[in-house]
Amino acid sequence: MDRVQEIFRGDRLIQDFGMKLIEGREGYAKVSVVVEDRFLNAHSIGHGVLLFAAADAAFALSVNAVVDAVGVQWSLNVFRAAKPGETVIGESRIIHKGRQSMVCELLVTAGDGRVLAKGQSTALPVSREAFAAGSGKKGG
């Protein structure tokens, strides 16, 4: 199975939020999610966590398409609100790929092209054995 598809299908939050994979390849990913009622905050706009989740899902797909990695830093500035019923699109592009870290540029837009948020994130390569050891599970 393609690495992007493997990560996409195996990520519980991506699945629980009903995200769709628009594009995914080594170093780049784009996902979408609809702003459903369950994602509205007390002001009846899309919750900031939904914008972050769209950006983070794309981030996870873009870096894990290259190597198994975990996110260790995020910075996301929100400029505009997501409206109920609209589609939010999260994009991530690797802008630095070193041996010990990767840095991504994040972009979150609305379906009509409005920029909702921009930021950066950093990932560290980690072996699958380290994931298994950290979770108390045996490797595999």
Rank of each mutant, 00 (worst) to 15 (best):
R114G: 07
V31D: 01
S92W: 00
R114S: 07
F131N: 15
A130I: 13
G111C: 10
I22E: 05
E36V: 13
F39Q: 05
S32Q: 09
S135M: 09
K30T: 06
I94M: 12
G71N: 15
V49I: 06
K137Y: 14
A58H: 05
A133D: 07
L51W: 14
L107P: 00
E91C: 05
G113L: 03
F8W: 11
V108L: 14
D68L: 10
P125E: 11
G111Q: 08
V103C: 01
D68V: 13
A42Q: 11
V34Q: 14
Q100I: 06
K20G: 11
V34S: 08
I7V: 11
Q15P: 02
Q120F: 13
A130F: 08
V4W: 00
L51E: 14
A53F: 15
V88L: 04
F79S: 04
A133F: 12
S127W: 00
D2M: 07
L40N: 12
D37V: 14
Q120P: 02
L106H: 03
V108N: 02
G90K: 03
D11Q: 11
V78Y: 09
G48F: 04
Q100V: 10
A82K: 09
A57G: 04
Q73V: 13
A69G: 03
L13A: 15
G85H: 06
S127E: 11
D112L: 08
R12Y: 12
F79V: 03
H43S: 06
K20Q: 12
I89W: 12
R3H: 14
A81G: 01
Q120R: 10
H43V: 06
G18C: 02
V115L: 11
N64R: 04
F52D: 04
I7T: 10
S92E: 04
L124H: 08
F8G: 00
M102A: 00
F131E: 13
K20W: 11
G111E: 11
F39L: 01
A133G: 09
G85D: 03
Q120N: 13
L51Y: 07
L50N: 02
N77R: 04
H43D: 11
M102W: 06
G27C: 05
I22Q: 00
I14E: 07
S92F: 01
A42T: 12
A82L: 09
L40M: 02
L13P: 06
S101D: 12
A123C: 08
S135P: 15
L76C: 04
L40V: 10
S135T: 15
F131P: 12
E86Q: 04
I95E: 02
H47T: 07
I89E: 12
K118L: 00
A42F: 15
R93A: 09
G27Y: 01
V103A: 10
V33M: 14
E23Y: 08
V66F: 13
Q73K: 12
G134I: 01
E129V: 07
Q100K: 12
R114D: 05
A42Y: 15
A132G: 13
I95F: 01
S121V: 02
V4Q: 04
S75V: 15
